[in-house]
């Protein structure tokens, strides 16, 4: 029996975008703002479409894990511990992630309000400060715009690193089983489905 011939779509190459995103942020931190697309698009699909089309088809990060893990054999392809995809861990991680996002927005506000100054560094795993000052030397935007860039880039890089670690240890896309955006959009879809 022949398998169904699958057509390749442009959005199956979005793993390139994932690499490009981190590369651009290495040269100019303002590019970090483009990461908001990965935040807003899944929510638009979930809220207005009631689906997870973004996760299912467009997620560049998920695709990158697949390319590295499956195609380049960088994954052990072993089952992840059950708790990693359990509801309490997924929603717990989402809560933690949103708290950290809120903290980052507050830090941006501090710079906006003049209560703090721009810190040209990124923070990995919410703990380790890494100097990143070459990526910004002033622009037409006020300092808080760059501060948000540093904060958001830190968040994106940290979550990708976590995803890479679980990709190597467990299955290619183990990250997807507790990805905060995935949990959020599935939650929205479940709520929408209930009222329908």
């Amino acid at each position: 029996m022949a398998t169904v011939k699958k057509q390749k779509h442009w959005y199956q190459y979005l793993w390139i975008w994932s690499i490009l995103y981190f590369s651009l942020g290495f040269f100019n931190i303002l590019f970090a703002w483009f990461g908001m697309l990965d935040f807003i698009l899944p929510l638009i699909f979930a809220i207005f479409g009631g689906n997870k089309w973004f996760c299912n088809n467009m997620c560049g990060r998920g695709q990158l894990f697949w390319v590295l893990g499956r195609n380049l054999k960088c994954s052990r392809q072993k089952s992840a511990p059950k708790w990693m995809s359990s509801k309490w861990f997924r929603y717990g991680f989402l809560t933690f992630f949103m708290t950290m996002f809120g903290t980052m927005v507050f830090q941006t506000y501090q710079v906006f309000a003049g209560a703090d100054t721009l810190k040209k560094a990124i923070k990995l795993f919410w703990t380790f400060r890494v100097p990143w000052q070459w990526t910004y030397s002033g622009s037409v935007f006020p300092d808080w715009v760059a501060q948000f860039g540093y904060g958001f880039y830190s968040l994106m890089l940290t979550s990708t690193l976590i995803g890479l670690i679980v990709m190597v240890l467990y299955k290619e896309r183990t990250w997807c089983s507790f990805c905060p955006m995935g949990t959020m959009t599935q939650g929205i879809c479940k709520l929408k489905n209930k009222e329908a």
Partner: peptide
């Protein structure tokens, strides 16, 4: 009940037999 609706299975199925039902 435990499915995270990520859609990895959908992309891998050689027969296009799987779909993600309403993002759930």
């Amino acid at each position: 009940n435990n499915c995270v609706a990520c859609g990895v299975c959908v992309g891998q199925c050689p027969r296009e037999a799987i779909s993600i039902y309403k993002g759930c």
